[in-house]
Design a protein around this nucleic acid. Structure first.
Lengths: 384, 384
DNA sequence: ATGAAAGCGCTAACAT
DNA sequence: ATGTTAGCGCTTTCAT
């Protein structure tokens, strides 16, 4: 009397016991067991989203069989598997990753904390992270600390609560207390420190080559036959100031020239600060014939100031920067700059993290340095 | 004999039954019941992360009591609550949001799909989204479709699997089939279409004011007394080409001037295409005295080309764009441009989404237009 | 005021 | 090859 749900035939279908109070049937011809779903046949129950229970009911089989079919286990009848897969499509089933996570103990989510998503540098870093993640089963929760320590702390809490499988963090400028990182480490949640790093924890770090890159810029200026090369740095407390100044000094040392302290000025990354710094340098008894700005915007502004004073670039003054930007290629003259590689930084960081998640061990080198590229443009003489 | 776990006193502590095979005690002086945790007192079991079970064991009380305390329920002894909270701090407990989500049926996660995170426009949009989200209990999973239809489809699948509470999507250029959106709608998952919209679904949309903004630019050019205003648009199939051209035409209509088709050229947003378009315009018997580029980069390049031909800007040629960028303020002359407000676009979109999640109903207006601002700079004459 | 137990959706060990 | 059941961590209903 009962038509088979699968092959549609009527003969060959026999009763085969009672399941959860319902009559179970077995079709001899197509080797398939099922029960009849009496009420609300196809409508998913809960809040609309199909579950494996819905599929199981729909086909009159058990949830574990559905699970097995969906997960390509070996001990499953190929026919059943086909049916389940078809039902999954029909009911537009999407596996509930929340439930899977709870069961498996990992979420397949990676947390990323950045201080400024709007900044092209970090935007590119994120793009790099996505490049890698897009080829995996992972997703990423992006947190924007907006340079606020409080937000950074809160975000770490949240990520731990979401039981993320790993964390990538670039610190806010305003963070000086790093207990939150220690807590992550204590919980053995893999964490990688990128770009804005701090050295007090034994965790992998991925950074720009500020020192070598800066050295390269200054070496280029030397190669262009500039003699009095100045540096406009940032606040002395910042690590980028220290590193990029280090590169400047290294270039001098290799060249065997003694750096002059009056050619080294410290600004604060504001326009006002730059104007001050520029004027200071130009008022020197012997002003510089080249300026290396550790902040690209300072270099752009320096070019503008030099033009106002009718100083010819690159003949009378060479200008170069650490840090590239679309603007650099569009000013007049175009700006020579060291172009770091934030995309690669993101890619490498997340690769290291994924590796750490899988292998539970740190990379051989705790510190990875990402190379950039010197973009030689018109703001520096080409006497090469 | 037994010291109270809470107040430390010994007298006043009596046995009060057996719980799960363990002796239970009650301290009369501080009104607190507990059992002794015989094995591994404080060490969390699972994969290192503390759970409420750990807290319960630690204090010798039941999980439901811990849950009540942690969730500020009314039917809980204030003393117990204090103890639980202290234990939570001591054990560095973080609530497992995965488990909470599974139980509650919502994840407190919002999915965002963007075609290009690296682009400053979308980076700003994301910043806007974060601005709002940072003040809520929500987190966001960011998906980068990288202008790929396949990735966009996959991301939607993933987001549905994560049971996100809502989705913000800006479509990839390469998507022409929108079944994935229909599926989201069918599942009653709130979704908002932002910036790159498509009109075939009844879902809220948030967009730039391409039409009005473009009209404003052209009106400004008229006000500057330019007579022959050209437009360099993009591929005709794109909605931004259509809308911004519409604004251009609207300005002409209001002015009561007939637009000339030879002043309307269509490019493809490449440098080569722009050079072509620019040359075409300038080779006209009567070349334009102003150009409105619907793509900012085309305007930057137009300025460069004009300078090469020794055409004086803004005297002989006015140049203006739809879309602003840091470059615009740094070229010579600086570029007049309509600056849309992607930050606000992000903020408004996510606000509408949060509202839809809470109230389960659409906003009054299905379409929201975000105003930008005309940035008048040196590339247009100021005869105002 | 507190404990026991069910259930969210899924997987896996165990049973048949 | 398939069904039953326990359990992931949490909240909540129902007892007590």
């Amino acid at each position: 009397m009962q038509k088979c749900l699968k092959c549609g035939k009527v003969d060959g279908v026999i009763r085969s016991g009672i399941v959860r109070g319902k009559q179970r049937y077995y079709c001899k011809s197509c080797d398939f067991s099922f029960v009849l779903d009496q009420n609300n046949p196809d409508l998913p129950k809960n809040k609309g989203l199909t579950t494996i229970v819905d599929i199981a009911r729909h086909l009159g089989i058990s949830v574990s069989t559905v699970s097995r079919a969906l997960n390509d286990k070996f001990d499953i009848n190929p026919n059943t598997k086909k049916l389940v897969n078809q039902a999954a499509i029909d009911l537009d089933y999407k596996p509930n990753l929340i439930a899977q996570s709870l069961h498996k103990g990992y979420s397949h989510i990676i947390g990323v904390v950045v201080p400024d998503i709007e900044h092209p540098y970090f935007a590119k870093m994120l793009a790099g992270i996505h490049n890698i993640i897009n080829h995996t089963a992972y997703s990423i929760i992006v947190c924007h600390s907006n340079e606020s320590a409080e937000l950074e702390y809160l975000h770490i809490e949240k990520l731990l609560s979401y039981r993320v499988d790993g964390i990538l963090i670039s610190h806010s400028k305003t963070v000086f207390d790093f207990d939150h990182i220690q807590k992550v480490i204590n919980k053995k949640v893999p964490i990688i420190n990128i770009d804005r790093i701090v050295n007090q924890h034994e965790i992998p770090k991925v950074v720009n080559n500020d020192i070598e890159g800066s050295k390269e810029v200054v070496q280029h200026l030397f190669a262009c036959k500039y003699k009095r090369i100045a540096i406009i740095a940032g606040p002395k407390s910042l690590s980028i100031t220290q590193k990029r100044t280090q590169g400047y000094l290294d270039a001098f040392q290799e060249k065997g020239i003694e750096p002059q302290t009056d050619l080294m000025v410290y600004s604060d990354f504001t326009s006002a600060g730059l104007i001050n710094a520029f004027n200071t340098l130009m008022s020197l008894p012997e002003p510089p014939d080249a300026i290396f700005c550790i902040f690209f915007k300072d270099a752009i502004d320096s070019i503008k100031l030099a033009k106002k004073r009718n100083i010819k670039i690159p003949e009378e003054l060479g200008v170069a920067a650490f840090g590239d930007d679309a603007i650099s290629g569009n000013v007049e003259p175009t700006l020579t700059a060291y172009n770091p590689n934030p995309v690669k930084l993101g890619e490498v960081s997340v690769s290291i993290l994924l590796d750490k998640i899988k292998n539970k061990e740190n990379p051989k080198e705790m510190s990875t340095i990402i190379e950039g590229e010197l973009m030689i443009r018109d703001s520096t003489r080409k006497f090469l």
